[in-house]
């Protein structure tokens, strides 16, 4: 059984987030919708036998527009999404029938457990889906202990 549980390292962050939310909600904002309802990008985190896996959907971005850094057990994802280069030149607002997609710069930090081999961290980006692999440290992996008979 793993002794470390992600939830434990996660919770202080959550508590802080909740606390900030509570404080912010107590303040009367004259402009509504000034706060982002949730962080971008949304991430999913999974645990596998040998690694943790973080996934995020980032359609329309290129691998070179993404920047991943890790320091002090905090993984920071940073990037920008440019509107498509339009062959027809600049498209004026009134030409748009519908605009639902968003563009611009974004950044998100995720605290990760200590027991990660930071040097072996790897990421892949395919079809607009980012996958970050966080391999567990060797000593965290289950180890077979050989049992010899007492002869």
């Amino acid at each position: 059984m793993p002794i470390f549980r992600w939830e434990q390292s996660w919770n202080p962050l959550r508590d802080l987030e909740r606390e900030v939310d509570r404080l912010v909600q107590g303040v009367e904002f004259s402009v509504q919708g000034i706060r982002m309802p949730r962080q971008y990008p949304a991430v999913n985190i999974f645990e596998l036998d040998h690694e943790y896996l973080i996934t995020a959907e980032l359609p329309g971005m290129l691998a070179e527009d993404l920047e991943l850094t890790i320091a002090n057990s905090v993984l920071t994802l940073k990037g920008h999404r440019n509107p498509p280069v339009i062959a027809d030149g600049e498209i004026s607002e009134e030409r748009f029938r519908r605009q639902e997609r968003t563009f611009g710069e974004w950044q998100r930090s995720i605290s990760i457990p200590d027991r990660i081999s930071e040097e072996q961290l790897s990421a892949e980006f395919n079809e607009g889906v980012l996958k970050i692999h966080l391999p567990k440290l060797e000593e965290e992996l289950p180890r077979q202990i050989p049992v010899s008979s007492g002869e």
């Binding site: 980032l58 339009i86 029938r97 519908r98 639902e100 997609r101």
Partner: peptide
């Protein structure tokens, strides 16, 4: 989605990650 119109026609973009 985004949809815009040009002289030649309509251009539609849709985000379909994955």
């Amino acid at each position: 989605i985004d949809i815009y119109e040009t002289e030649a026609g309509l251009v539609l973009y849709a985000d379909l990650p994955g």
